[in-house]
Amino acid sequence: ASVAVIAAGTQGNIFATSALRSMRFLQILRMVRMDRRGGTWKLLGSVVYAHSKELITAWYIGFLVLIFASFLVYLAEKDANSDFSSYADSLWWGTITLTTIGYGDKTPHTWLGRVLAAGFALLGISFFALPAGILGSGFALKVQEQHRQKHFEKRRMPAANLIQAAWRLYSTDMSRAYLTATWYYYDSILPSFRELALLFEHVQRARNGGLRPLEVRRAPVPDGAPSRYPPVATCHRPGSTSFCPGESSRMGIKDRIRMGSSQRRTGPSKQHLAPPTMPTSPSSEQVGEATSPTKVQKSWSFNDRTRFRASLRLKPRTSAEDAPSEEVAEEKSYQCELTVDDIMPAVKTVIRSIRILKFLVAKRKFKETLRPYDVKDVIEQYSAGHLDMLGRIKSLQTRVDQIVGRGPGDRKAREKGDKGPSDAEVVDEISMMGRVVKVEKQVQSIEHKLDLLLGFYSRCLRSGTSASLGAVQVPLFDPDITSDYHSPVDHEDISVSAQTLSISRSVSTNMD
């Protein structure tokens, strides 16, 4: 405001104040949320940038038409019409005319000016109207692209899951042992070998009828009888010197917790746990005396209480009078009846079946994303299906024409109403129809010849004498029936064969 007042002088105070007050009108834009329509302006900018070359070309040609039209109309009207006294007036008329506004304040009066105005109007309006069409088509394409992008975003994750499931299904095939990355992934998420051994031990116990592997080994086996189970490696608790092959000598807290839970599941009659010990102070733990958990001091820290809870689970003690015997301790020893080589084939089979199920689920979810969402998608899918159906029908028609023997030239002739090819031409065609016709002709010829021969033979049998045999009239074959199959017997006289037959029969009768 200060700059405006200084620039306008003393009389500019009122002007500056009114100008600043008129800017209050811009507050109405906040009512229509114009300040939060950044996406709309961004869309407009992207459309203009995408079609910038077309817009520049249309505007450039339109500007050239405007300059030439205004100049030529000015030359034609400057002497006869006072409205075109300057080139600026003519340029104003050209702008209003070519933009199809047409105020009518300035019009050419001479015939030359009117002809020039009409010609440049028809030429220039087309170029001035091009930017509107370019922007409209650009907006339509952009909206369609955003629509497809939205659908693509919805299909991206199911497609990625389907590709991942397909690759993992491919890589978990037993015949592709060189693909090891997927197996490394499952090695990292699978439970430890100790848990798998416990699982298979329970399965084997159920197969043995509820007997433990130790009891199965204690059962008497006759001499020479084959053992029911192959000899396997035996594993004891981590306190002993022997372990399962492939295990580490260090046992983690999870393994100890699972070991304690498995020992508690063996039965309360074979294992008696004394009350857990509780320390009397955060600094020292008295293991010899058993106290109640309700006497825990409230001033303990979080670490002390955590250690106390761990001691409740991981440090059970047995009383002296209830101490288990050596046999019970041997039964409680952890027996590992299986090795990694025995378990891994079954584990890989389970993983393979899981990968198949996940692949089928991913495939079903991806197919669900291909379903249409709204009416536009339904129409688009219907149009695509219609085009596909037309293509299939056209391909089927082409194959039928190839089989029947109607080529493209014959199809055009039928469409024009011309006469089709004759039967002889159809026979000569190298097509399925021509071959079928040729075979039918040959079969008819053979059938006719057989009928003639059978009739001749029956007449010979009825006559009974050589004289009557020679008097029999043998009809000749019709050459038209034989089609294109020409037998060497067709052109010979059958009477010669009949005479030869009669001579042979007379000779045979004389010999008798």
Rank of each mutant, 00 (worst) to 15 (best):
F359C: 05
S502N: 06
A181D: 11
I343N: 13
R313I: 05
R355G: 13
H448D: 14
P408H: 13
K254N: 04
K332N: 04
S292C: 09
S497P: 04
D173E: 13
P191S: 08
A362T: 11
S333T: 05
A219T: 10
T349P: 10
Y185F: 07
R264L: 05
A346G: 11
F308V: 15
S292N: 11
H202R: 01
Y170H: 10
P191A: 08
V426E: 06
D374E: 00
N303Y: 15
R505H: 09
K254R: 10
S292I: 15
P230L: 08
A165V: 07
L454M: 13
A498E: 04
E380K: 08
Q444E: 12
S483A: 13
E285A: 12
F243I: 13
K295R: 06
P488R: 06
R265P: 09
I356T: 10
V340M: 11
D388N: 11
A384T: 13
V439A: 14
V375E: 15
S192T: 07
R258H: 05
L211R: 10
K365N: 08
I481L: 11
K348N: 13
R317P: 15
S248N: 05
G407W: 08
F366Y: 02
R258S: 15
P231T: 13
F456L: 12
S192A: 12
E289A: 14
V427M: 11
C336F: 05
T180S: 10
K315R: 04
T509I: 06
I446S: 11
E425Q: 09
R392G: 01
W183S: 08
A181G: 09
N303H: 13
I503V: 05
I503F: 03
E429A: 13
E201G: 07
V443A: 15
K363R: 14
R414G: 02
I494L: 08
Y457S: 07
L199W: 14
S422Y: 15
D377G: 12
V507D: 13
C336W: 07
E201K: 06
V216G: 07
L190R: 06
P282T: 12
R406W: 03
R194I: 06
D493G: 07
R355T: 14
K332R: 13
M432V: 06
K298E: 15
S281P: 13
S497T: 11
P213S: 05
K332M: 06
G385R: 15
F308S: 14
K449M: 15
T306I: 10
G417D: 06
I343F: 14
V496D: 08
H491Y: 14
R250W: 05
S508I: 04
H448N: 08
L390P: 02
Y334C: 11
Q473R: 03
R459S: 13
P293A: 07
Y184F: 12
K315E: 09
K441T: 14
S283I: 08
F477S: 04
S281Y: 15
F200I: 06
D341Y: 09
L169Q: 05
M432I: 15
D342A: 05
V328E: 14
G267A: 04
R399P: 01
A225G: 05
H272L: 14
I253N: 05
I393T: 01
P238S: 06
R435S: 13
A467T: 09
L461M: 04
Q335L: 11
T172N: 03
R305H: 05
E327Q: 09
L338R: 13
L390R: 15
P345T: 08
Y186D: 11
G405S: 02
A467S: 04
S506P: 06
K438M: 12
R218W: 09
L396R: 01
M344L: 11
R399Q: 08
M259L: 06
D342N: 14
G246W: 05
I253T: 12
K298M: 07
S319A: 12
S262P: 06
Q286L: 04
F200V: 07
E337V: 13
A329T: 07
P245T: 14
K416N: 02
T294A: 13
S269F: 14
P316S: 15
Q499P: 12
L450M: 00
M174R: 09
R317C: 09
T241N: 06
Y170D: 02
Y170N: 11
V426G: 10
L314P: 07
D410H: 15
I379V: 08
E429Q: 11
A197S: 11
Q444H: 08
R194T: 12
S171Y: 02
V203E: 10
L211Q: 12
Q335P: 07
R462C: 04
S353T: 13
H202N: 12
S311F: 13
R305C: 14
R414L: 11
P222R: 09
R305P: 15
T234I: 13
Q499E: 09
C235Y: 10
P345H: 01
D512Y: 10
T369S: 03
I343V: 13
Q402L: 14
R212Q: 13
H448Q: 11
A274V: 12
I354N: 08
A329G: 04
P230Q: 07
S283C: 11
V472A: 11
S422C: 09
F200L: 10
L476V: 06
R307L: 11
T482I: 05
H491R: 07
S495A: 14
E201A: 10
D418Y: 06
C460S: 13
V328L: 10
L454S: 13
N208S: 07
K419T: 13
C336R: 07
L396V: 11
L314R: 10
G455C: 06
A467P: 10
F302C: 02
Q263K: 07
E337D: 08
I189N: 12
R371L: 09
A346P: 11
P230T: 09
R371Q: 08
L360Q: 01
P275L: 09
V350A: 11
L370Q: 02
Y178H: 11
L196Q: 09
G267R: 14
D322Y: 15
W300L: 15
H272N: 08
M278K: 00
